[in-house]
Design a protein around this nucleic acid. Sequence first.
DNA 1: GCCAACGTTGGC
DNA 2: GCCAACGTTGGC
Length: 154
Amino acid sequence: MKYWLFKSEPNCFSYDDLLKCKNQTEPWDGVRNYQARNFMRDEMRVGDLGIFYHSNCKPPHAIGLLEIVSAGRPDPTQFDPFSEHPDLTADPKNPRWFLVDVRARGKFRRPVSLSEMREIPDLSDMKLLSRGNRLSVMPIEKKHFELLKKLGGL
DNA sequence: GCCAACGTTGGC
DNA sequence: GCCAACGTTGGC
């Protein structure tokens, strides 16, 4: 089993928004980065777990757990000219962008801020903390997942 | 295939 | 609002 970190801007889609979705499940659509796409298309498996991270807010923080509940599948929003990230050059017979469906697996009792993470030596080699990292979906080591979960009070 | 220009991300 | 980092684009 693998572990992942999913970034989202809370004013766009927050953990509470996920909790309000049917079955607390939602497609993680709109990703338009090849590396992130490859993770979703090729490496995620049903049952993998993830951390939900709120970016571009004050302070940025990890806020809860999620579970991957579908394999990678084509992201329908690429073909929708009215979606936020249409890609009209994508061929429906050979989709370019993929998503997975994620389900909420528990909100943290307390958020774990980015600055707090930076102060914890055991988290120092997390990809999230590396300079200039802009990936919205990235792998995370099990030990980091477990520690974040604990810091979040779960 | 190189690389300059440009756009985006996202912490600060 | 600034800017570092980095991905993408497109001319050559």
